[in-house]
Amino acid sequence: MIKTLSKIIVATILVASSLSAADADNSKYKFNINSLIGFEGTYSNFDYERTEAGVLTEREKVSLNGGGLKIGAESQNYRFFLAARVYDAGEFDYARTYGVELQYKFNFSKFANMYIGVNFGKADMRFVDTKNGHDNTVMIDDTYLGGDVGFNVHLGKHVDWEIGARVMSLNTSKTDAGATYNFDNLVTGYTSIIFKYKMD
């Protein structure tokens, strides 16, 4: 996964360099590329099931608040982000995600646009189950794949307000002390402030 992300980062830098060179050209083939940095607040739900000897003994929904940082670039119709997020919830000692997001923008108005996209990356979590006399700890260190949809409102030439929904699918199982924990989807509502700027 780290090798894949490294290749993506290198490819992004190369593409950005070529686009900057094209932008410096005074020909008609100029590109309008913005660099982006965003600060995000999130509210998420996370489901898990606990089974012992193949018998379902518990089904729970966990709520997590979180925050994140994402950096990227956008053209007229596309956005690309590298994102890191942390989450806070009682059942998790820690919960973090790191990933890549690619989005397509529908520019239906000069005041706002809609986007849909895909995301993938890595989830790094430590889950502690102390309910009903349990004392189990499971580590999640797996990849996720998902999608998101939302709206950008242009607050100014260099600032967007973003509101959206995201799904990250883990579909992973972990076992501790004879109990198996099945983790499904991390479903998130989020809002972000996106700052746009051009790099020379």
Rank of each mutant, 00 (worst) to 15 (best):
T130Y: 07
V86K: 03
I8L: 15
S6F: 10
N32M: 09
M199P: 02
D184K: 14
T137S: 14
A73S: 13
D47M: 03
K105L: 15
N152K: 10
R96S: 09
L5A: 14
H154V: 04
N119E: 06
V15H: 03
F39V: 15
F39K: 08
D93S: 14
K70H: 13
T137Q: 12
K174N: 10
N182E: 11
N136T: 09
G121S: 08
G121A: 08
I116K: 07
K196I: 05
G68E: 00
Y94I: 03
E40W: 01
I140G: 01
G41K: 11
G67S: 12
A89C: 04
G67T: 03
G41A: 14
L19G: 02
K122E: 07
L36N: 03
Y94C: 08
V167Q: 01
H154Y: 15
R59N: 11
L14M: 09
T191F: 05
G121C: 05
V118S: 11
T97P: 00
N185L: 04
V86I: 11
G147F: 08
A53P: 01
E74I: 01
M168V: 03
D200S: 14
V55W: 04
N171A: 10
E49A: 09
D176L: 07
D176E: 11
L5C: 06
D135Q: 14
Y197G: 15
S169T: 10
G90N: 12
A112Y: 11
T4Y: 11
D88N: 14
S169L: 05
A21V: 06
D160V: 04
N171Y: 13
V15F: 06
L5N: 08
R96Y: 13
R50H: 06
V62K: 01
N26V: 03
D47F: 02
I116N: 09
Y104H: 13
M114D: 03
I9H: 15
